[in-house]
Simulated assay, not measured.
Amino acid sequence: MITNDNRIRIIIGHYGSGKSEFAINYVTKLRKEVQNKVALSDLDVVNVYFRTREKKELLKSLDILPIDSSIDAPTLDLPALSGQITTPINDKSYEYVMDVGGDNVGARVVGRFNHLIKENDYDMFCVVNANREQTQTAEKVIEHIRAIEKSSGLKVTGLINNTHLIRSTTIEDILRGQALVSKVSKLCDIPVKYVVCMENLIPQLPKDLEGEVFPIKLYMREDWM
């Protein structure tokens, strides 16, 4: 259950992994299950597409605090971060989700605040899409994880199988991704935390998968995309 995860959840993943989609699904589910205040920060200053800041009004309507740029100019891509980022780190009345940029350069942003993040107060989850060229092998996934860990100064504590082709995803895609994250898990001693799946595919999933099945909606992609 997501309520068993540590209070600060840092979400990382390569470009095209579905990291931000997972982050917004995670935080909306979290909002339903906890009484504490909930915040989501968009720390992705590298990729300009499909960022959680695009759903700021939705988040506000759900009583989730959205944190992104210090400049209120949504049509501009400016790498300016809000000072609010540290508030939910320091204030333990918050449950906090941090959506971090997709590579080691993006991870440097969270590295600026790692001195504030206590070892037993965070999880860093790596979202893996085995259909992306950069993360199709265990070696490439591990290389990505190590680069992120080096830049952020924090350790990955869980793996998320989010292997997909958006609305064309098949059960075979998910199972291929599961084999990949299971191999990475064994090589790195990092548990598989979640298996992301569109709700209509859940009945086809085997019952003995490592990790909790995580139903997902497509918040970040409109119906026409």
Results as ranks from 00 to 15, higher is better:
Asn120Glu: 15
Asp68Gln: 08
Cys126Asp: 10
Glu143Asn: 14
Ile117His: 01
Leu43Ala: 01
Val105Gly: 04
Cys188Phe: 08
Arg132Gln: 15
Leu76Met: 13
Ser61Arg: 14
Leu175Ile: 14
Asp223Asn: 15
Ala147Cys: 10
Arg31Glu: 05
Val34Leu: 09
Thr3Met: 03
Leu154Val: 01
Met98Pro: 00
Lys150Tyr: 11
Leu81Tyr: 00
Ser93Arg: 14
Asn104Leu: 10
Phe50Thr: 08
Glu172Phe: 09
Tyr96Met: 11
Lys140Met: 13
Pro66Trp: 05
Ala39Gln: 11
Ser41Phe: 09
Asn47Ile: 05
Val141Lys: 11
Ser93Ile: 03
Gly16Phe: 07
Ala107Gln: 04
Ile71Glu: 11
Glu95Met: 13
Lys19Met: 01
Phe113Ile: 07
Leu205Tyr: 09
Val48Asn: 10
Tyr94Trp: 11
Ile8Ser: 06
Leu209Glu: 04
Asp189Gln: 15
Asp44Thr: 02
Phe214Met: 12
Asn6Met: 07
Pro74Cys: 13
Ser168Leu: 14
Glu95Trp: 09
Thr3Asp: 03
Gly106Ala: 07
Val141Phe: 05
Ile216Gln: 04
Lys56Gln: 06
Leu218Tyr: 03
Tyr49Ser: 12
Glu149Met: 07
Gly177Asn: 05
Lys60Asn: 09
Met98Arg: 00
Lys92Val: 02
Lys155Thr: 06
Leu59Gln: 08
Gly18His: 01
Asp91Cys: 14
Lys92Asp: 07
Thr75Leu: 11
Thr157Phe: 04
Leu218Val: 02
Val213Lys: 08
Ile216Val: 15
Phe125Lys: 05
Leu205Thr: 00
Asp68Ala: 12
Tyr219Ile: 00
Val110Gln: 02
Ala138Asp: 00
Lys193His: 07
Asp103Val: 02
Glu172Val: 13
Glu149Lys: 10
Val97Arg: 01
Asn162Phe: 02
Leu187Asp: 14
Leu201Asn: 05
Ala73Lys: 12
Ile117Ser: 03
Gly13Thr: 03
Ile85Met: 13
His115Ile: 09
Asn131Asp: 01
Ile71Lys: 13
Val34Asp: 04
Ser20Trp: 04
Tyr122Cys: 03
Ser93Thr: 09
Leu218Glu: 01
Asn161Ser: 13
Asp123Lys: 11
Gln204Ile: 10
Leu65Val: 08
Leu180Asn: 02
Lys60Glu: 12
Asn90Gly: 15
Ala130Gly: 13
Phe113Glu: 00
Asp99Met: 03
Met198Asn: 13
His115Lys: 15
Met98Ile: 14
Tyr96Pro: 00
Tyr49Lys: 12
Asn47Gly: 05
Ile71Leu: 14
His14Gln: 12
Lys217Cys: 01
Tyr94Gln: 08
Ser185Trp: 00
